[in-house]
Design a protein around this nucleic acid. Structure first.
Length: 431
RNA sequence: GUGAGCAUGGCGAAGUGGUUAACGCACCGGAUUGUGGUUCCGGCAUUCGUGGGUUCGAUUCCCACUGCUCACCCCA
């Protein structure tokens, strides 16, 4: 039987998993610097968490969820994004009772039933954060800065923050009316998709990749930005002032509309020219209450980890070289079957003193073992054969110089730890 | 959900309607006795995604299926 992975999933193998570990490490490090703590929520939730949290009208809920009934007949869903579950946990565990704002981050797999393509899988990974309890523009700017900071610390360059405000429940209906008014006479010029968006969600027309945004212009349809209420206007300029103060460059993109229903006011995406979106976020001031909690404002972002890694590979030039396994300190070679047990003992002793040590497990000849030692990029080879065993010594060869000496077996591990210690010590500190 | 392209050994990749399916990398073995990285020699696809059809004959032509990739939609 030929089993293969489900569509849209991938195996992250040794050689590329190192990039993932690095990205995770960097993200955690930066989150910690900004005072965020990790939260781990289930990868599946009751379906209504997402229906309510993400929004009934979104594509995610309407056609992309992995939903199934469990053995007790309950409907559960693999999380398609991180925010809803975090908010659910925030409410359920009453984290709002604590002092100050809650600053939480998460990292892990998400699931959406979509057709896979470049930078898009059915099981994909995001890290992101949520800040609950502040609606001041300062936190908006901080979260945006944090979003970018995680990415630049990972080594990405040329990122652009595109910023917009999608208004609030006060100004959005007003804007919608104005837009519809301007647009109705031009409905025939819109593409099919946009004609249906007209009534449902006219904002999205700004996002259309066909000719429709041009129609908007001809119709003189106002962008959201032009229809903001005073409070939203003030908030936006506050965010901009803070971004300037933090030294975070951004461009206003009046066409930026985020897909999730819960966004209010600040919305942004972090993009790279010719690549697309790496991450994005927004403010959601009604979501916590919507999920049964107190009426606290929130804001957060999510980064697509596949995309971050993909982008870094592209920026690094097309090398895409797999990370090699770290080299060995010592390779233990068995020259004669009588040395089998003493060699096993030596290997164990080497590892016990903290050295990276390995051996051949396939009964190869001595020559082949040396070849293996080379491929494993060992610094030293420790050879045990009949003559060594009877004399209680081990032959140690420095594989870079070719110099060869003998050491008493029972002191060999300590001695090798001393000479090889420096580099392996550095290695351990990084871990 | 819509559209397009592609499926040859572990990987990359040539190829043809007809007796033995290039090549490169990787891997394994050897070049005299217990010593490597270079070099040299040898080995490594009863088989060309699966199933059917056309044909004297198909990996090469046709159909279906499956899978992969890319774009649209949407998003991370």
């Amino acid at each position: 039987m030929h089993v293969q992975r489900p569509r849209g999933t991938s195996d992250i193998l040794p050689g590329s998993v190192e990039r993932w570990q690095e990205l995770e490490r960097v993200a955690r490090e930066v989150f910690a610097r900004y005072g965020y703590r990790e939260i781990r929520t289930p990868v599946f939730e009751h379906t209504e968490v997402f229906e309510r949290g993400v929004g009934e009208t979104t594509d995610i809920v309407q056609k992309e969820m992995y939903t199934f009934t469990d053995r007790a007949g309950r409907s559960v869903t693999l999380r398609p994004e991180g925010t809803a579950g975090v908010i659910r946990a925030f409410v359920e565990n009453k984290l709002y009772g604590q002092t100050g704002v809650a600053k939480l981050y998460y990292i892990g797999p998400m699931f959406r039933y979509e057709k896979p393509q470049k930078g898009r899988e059915r099981q994909f990974h995001q890290y992101g954060c949520e800040v609950l309890g502040s609606d001041g523009p300062a936190i908006d700017a901080e979260v945006i800065a944090l979003n970018v900071d995680t990415l630049t610390n990972f080594g990405l360059r040329g990122l652009v923050v595109e910023l917009n405000s999608v208004g609030c429940p006060d100004c959005r209906p007003r804007h919608r009316e104005r837009m519809l008014e301007a647009l109705r006479p031009y409905a025939a010029e819109l593409c099919d998709d946009c004609r249906s968006r007209l009534e449902k969600n006219p904002l999205r027309i700004f996002d259309c990749k066909r000719g429709c945004p041009a129609v908007l212009e001809r119709a003189g349809a106002p962008t959201v930005l032009k229809s903001l209420c005073e409070a939203c206007e003030t908030h936006l300029s506050g965010v901009r002032a803070h971004l300037d103060a933090l030294g975070v460059p951004y461009v206003i993109n009046e066409r930026l509309v985020r897909g999730l229903d819960y966004y209010t006011r600040t919305a942004w995406e972090v993009t790279s020219a010719g690549f697309g979106t790496v991450g994005g976020g927004g403010r959601y001031n009604r979501l916590v209450a919507e999920l049964g909690g107190p009426d606290v404002p929130g804001i957060g972002f999510a980064v697509g980890m596949e995309r971050a890694i993909l982008l870094r590979q592209e920026q690094a030039g097309q090398d895409g070289a797999a990370d090699r396994q770290a080299g060995l300190d010592v390779f233990v070679a068995v020259a004669d079957s009588s040395a089998e047990l003493p060699a096993a003992r030596l290997l164990q002793a080497l590892r016990q003193v903290g050295l990276v040590a390995d051996r051949d497990y396939q009964g190869r000849g001595l020559k082949a073992q040396f070849k293996l030692a080379d491929r494993m990029r060992a610094r030293y080879a420790a050879v045990l054969g009949e003559s060594e065993v009877t004399r209680g010594v081990v032959t140690v060869k420095d594989l870079t110089t070719g110099a060869q000496t003998e050491l008493p077996v029972d002191r060999a591990a300590a001695e090798l730890a001393r000479v090889a210690g420096q580099s392996s010590g550095e290695r351990k500190e990084q871990a």
